[in-house]
Structures are given as C-alpha cells and as structure tokens.
Computed example of a mutant assay.
Amino acid sequence: MPISDYDNVKEVRISRDELYELVWTERQSDIAKKYYISENGLIKKCQEWNIPMPNLKYWIQLKDTTNPPTKVPLPQYSGYDMVYLKLREDYEKKKESIQKKISNIKKEIEEDSNVNLKVPERLTNPDPLIATARDRLYKKEVYRKSQGIIHHNQGSIGIYVTPSQLNRALRFMDTMIKALRSRGHHFINQNGSAHLAIYGEDYRISCQEKERRIKITNEYGRQESQLEPTGRLSFRLGESYFRKEWTEGKIPIEEQVSKILASVEYRGRKDHEERIENEKQWEERRQKQLMEKEIQDKKEKELDDFKEIFKLSLRHDKAQAIRRFADKLEQSALSNNDLGNETQKRIEWIRKKADWFDPFIESYDELLDGIDRDELVLHKQSFYLLKD
C-alpha cells in the first residue's frame, strides 16, 4: 500500500498540557515556523482540546517584566489529548529532496526526443483510449450531473468536464497518454476502466474540471449550496486517500505536461520501491513467525509427550498400589485363617484389574473393554425398553 511522501518525516509527540504551555510561551507564528502546522490549524486544535489562547494584549503586557500578565487556567478535559506534529525543518528538507528528484526526472523527460510534450490545437490521430472516450462523450453516451458535468469512463480514460471543456480535456489527455506510452508505460483494464501501469504499479487516471461550492436560492426561497464548474482542469492519479492531483492555475494545464509526467513517474517509482520493501519486511516477519511457530510446536509436542509419560507413570504407580493392596489382602486373610474360595476369587479379580490398568500390560478385560484407562468413566447409553 502506498504511503504519503511525508509519512516518514520525524514527528514530535505533544500532550494537551504541553500544547497549553507552548501557546502561552511562544506566538502562533513562531510555533507554525517550528512545526508543520498552520496558525489556523493550531487555533482549531486548541479549540478542539478546549485550550485557552492568549490575545494580543497578553503579548504586549508580557514585555513588562515588572507586572507580567497571568495565564488563563487550563480547563478540565476528558478526551484524547495527544497530537503528533512534524518538525517543519525536517518536512521542508523532505520536500526539497522530493522536488529535486522530480526535477531530475522532468529534465530527463524533456531531453527525451521520443516524447511529445506539446498539446496540439486540434485532436488528430488520437490514442485508442481517447478515441473511445471522444466517441462516447460526443455521442451523448454519458452520465450527466446536475451542474452540467459529463463523463463516461467505462472501458476508457475517465473524463469529467462540461461540454465547453471537453475538447481541451481530450487533447490534453491524449498528449499525456501518448507521452506515457513513449516512456515505456502501458494501460490495463481494471474493473471496466483504463488504469495506468507504471513500474509494476497501476493507477486510475482521469481529467476533471474543478468545481466550487456556491450559495443559491431554491424555488422555495431557501438558501442552499451547489457545485458550479470553474473551467479549470485537473489531472488525477490514484483514488481516495492516495490520490494525487495537479490543477491548473495561472499556468494552463497544457503547459504542465512534463511536470505532471515527471511527478507521475516519481510516484510510480516510489510506490514500487515501498511495495518491494513492504513485501520484504512482510516476508521477514512471516519467516520469523514460522520459526517462532516451529519452536512453539516443538515445545507443545515436548510437553504433550511429557504429560503422556507422566500420565502412564501415574497409572503404573497406581497399578502397583492395587497389586500391593491385593498382597496385603491375601496376607491378612492368611493371618486370620480366612482365605476361603470367595476371598481368593476377590484377590484374583483385583490382580487382573491391576494388569488391565498397568500401561506395561494392559491386558484384555471383557467388561472394561472400551473404557478409557485414564478417564475411568463409563459413557452410558439410554435404552427405551418395550413393555411386555
């Protein structure tokens, strides 16, 4: 699973009490410079944790060492009170390293004579994926949104734009796809839509027109919000949390092909390397678990074997005790001149039961056949007798 480029940047754990002391000791701007958090984000976190914050008057009075201001006490709070903040310096170093790698890839792409980075004024000889998207979109085989966005990505590249931006989107995406193919990458069908396969990874890609939320008055005179197309195009790689997006601003998206292509290749390489490393770590953990399980299985077998020996030794000792009891019974009968036929039968019966119970003999006994020698329990059967 791919992770964020900045997930491995060092983090500092800060408790609610520590954050309270921090905001009353350092200004918000200084905290935002030290940690990767905006001043607005800091205010929201303090509001979430019910941490009072100093006003401007407090900082002015703080300069007066003879009469320093007092802090507002920290109220009680019962929620989770631990936040992890990245050090801005480490974050910026990571960002600089990433930008340098992307810049090197961009230079390599721009020097590659096989790659056309210029978006044409007209769509000519389109890539099959774009031709399919174009035919379906212009033939109105599309899904429509209430704000006029049209799209159709079944078996083709995802394009979500208003009709006025469709030609631009098709020309830009055609250039991107051809450039990706020239760089040795290809496309595969995943769940009915085309995905980019790059360095062993695959991503859903699309071109989307950005929207903004506006307030309108509905037919009942009530205020509500809706999305309105802006005319600005964006290129999206991936989905959900792991989605990366490039949006045009002052620079049209047609002039960002090499930059976007370099960023896409960087993302593919990074995700591939991380996946290989994750698989390596997973395999190491698996092998370690197998070894631990093997040792555990050996211990379990050793213990089971010992328990069996212990159980048999107890049975042998008890069998010997039964024999000693038979000998004592016989001696007592002789001493009392009472060794009659019934007593002799009783003593013989006891000795046979000792032989049945002894693990070294385990002689056959018709009436005890099927009885577990360790449990010595008769599992009774229910009988439903017919009446005479």
Rank of each mutant, 00 (worst) to 15 (best):
L137E: 00
Y138N: 12
K145W: 05
K140R: 07
N114W: 09
D135G: 08
A131Q: 14
N114G: 14
Q147P: 01
T124P: 00
I105C: 01
N125C: 09
K140T: 12
V142E: 03
Y143H: 12
Y143E: 02
D135H: 05
L129G: 12
D135S: 08
T124G: 01
A133T: 03
R136F: 10
Q147F: 06
E111A: 05
V115W: 04
I130T: 02
R136A: 10
N114S: 13
R144V: 13
E108D: 10
L117Y: 10
D127N: 12
D112C: 09
E121T: 06
S146F: 08
K145H: 07
S113Y: 11
K107I: 08
E121W: 14
N125T: 15
E141G: 07
E141L: 10
R134E: 01
N125M: 15
A131Y: 12
E111Q: 08
I109Y: 00
K140M: 12
V115P: 01
N114I: 07
L117F: 14
V142K: 00
K140N: 14
R122Y: 14
Y143A: 13
L123Y: 02
V142L: 00
P120L: 10
E111W: 02
A131T: 06
L137R: 00
R136Y: 11
K107R: 02
K139D: 12
E111N: 09
E111S: 07
P120M: 06
K145N: 08
R134V: 06
K145Q: 10
N104F: 05
R122S: 11
K140A: 14
V142S: 01
R136K: 11
D135V: 05
Y138H: 06
V115A: 10
A131S: 15
S146D: 11
K140D: 15
A131D: 15
I105G: 09
Y138R: 09
P128W: 01
E121G: 15
L137A: 04
Y138V: 09
T132E: 07
Y143M: 10
D127Y: 08
K118C: 00
E111L: 07
A131R: 13
T132M: 08
A133M: 02
V142R: 00
I105Q: 02
P128Y: 03
S103W: 04
I105R: 02
I102Y: 03
K140L: 13
R122C: 06
N104R: 04
I130R: 00
E141Y: 13
N104G: 04
L129V: 02
P126C: 07
Q147K: 12
K145D: 05
A131I: 01
K140G: 11
K106S: 12
K140V: 13
